[in-house]
Amino acid sequence: MKALSQRRRHPLAAIALLLMGLLLTGGLYAVASGANEAKAQSSPYTAEDVEEGKKLFVANCATCHGMSGQGTETGPSLVGVGAAAVHFQVGTGRMPLQMQGPQAKEKPPQFNEEETRQMAAYVASLGPGPAIPGEKALDTSDADPGNGGQLFRVNCAMCHNAAGAGGALTRGKFAPQLAGVEDVHVYEAMITGPQNMPVFNDATISPQGKQDIIAFLNTIESTPSPGGADLGSLGPVSEGLFVWTAGLGVIIAFTIWLTSRSS
């Protein structure tokens, strides 16, 4: 126990823990998605994948995006959006869209990893676009969370909040919370710019920078707030609300006890 706690306080312990966590998630992810990722990176998809993907696409997506992904009035063209966009939108459950609204919301995905990959293969065949990032791109073992934090504050915090708690956009749209989002989806969101999010290509934020950002997000997600409960990381609003409700509430309870007569 003592030895463990001593090692836990070692300066590298946090990083080691982090790496373990990352390897574990990465490993699980790799198991879940099989060896397909590697294939996606090196060689494009097989003709069979594209064929299967097309069937799924026609059945589930063509109503809005058109029979050949050319787009309609209700859905944008998918030519050139790339496999990464499909993997992000379908993998996070945003697509197929539940209903028209200011913005597609995250929900449990409707397709499994294999089906998603097949649809991605089909959409990728429509025109060149960003591919699903492979294991190498997502390897954050030598990433620098400090630099990631700086990049995050400049490029992401204005919408997603400095602690990744999310924020409001115009007319009912919003930037979602980032805790719990898988690394690959964060990466894909940056390279594809889903919905109203701008695109951050490799020139704007280098692949290394993207890994740094992911490492930063994983660090703040895995580290609890040293000060105790974080009250949603929403800043002074939740703090003010807390002091007026809980703080003053407890104090008032004490004042009532204090001035009441003893039985």
Binding site: R9, H10, A13, T223, P224, P226, G228
Partner: peptide, 12 residues
């Protein structure tokens, strides 16, 4: 030292 978990525990 260098341990946010411990800091949280200490603060509590």
């Amino acid at each position: 030292s260098n341990d946010v978990e411990a800091l949280r525990l200490q603060n509590m």
